[in-house]
């Protein structure tokens, strides 16, 4: 318990990952889903950096994490632009209401 190793970080990131999935599943607000995605990506990043710290000893994991952060920012920008259009069309941000194509 007192020596921190790779497994501690892996368990932490697994729990944060599951919480992110839970957030994505339970929120009906589109922005809540976006927040859940951010949690999932952060969990993945912790994993990458932890492996870099304990297994490879080089900065490769940092590189991947930098790209993940970059993609997360891009995804948030596009996502919010889409949600704005969604809101303009349906006057709500509740994703369950966007089912016009179902029938």
């Amino acid at each position: 318990m007192l020596t921190i190793g790779l497994n501690h970080y892996l368990v932490l990131s697994a729990i944060v990952f599951s919480l992110g999935i839970l957030c994505m599943v339970t929120k009906r607000n589109a922005l809540g889903i976006l927040i859940g995605v951010e949690l999932v990506l952060n969990a993945a990043n912790v994993n990458l950096v932890a492996f870099s710290r304990y297994q490879t000893g080089a900065a490769d994991g940092h590189m991947f994490a930098v790209f993940v952060i970059l993609l997360a920012a891009a995804e948030a920008a596009i996502g919010i632009a889409i949600f704005m259009n969604f809101y303009n069309t349906l006057q709500t941000i509740d994703v369950d209401r966007g089912d016009e194509l179902r029938n």
Binding site: L31, A76, A77
Partner: peptide, 10 residues
């Protein structure tokens, strides 16, 4: 950006 989105859509 997210908080800004909330302000615009709620």
């Amino acid at each position: 950006l997210i908080v800004f989105g909330v302000m615009l859509t709620s």
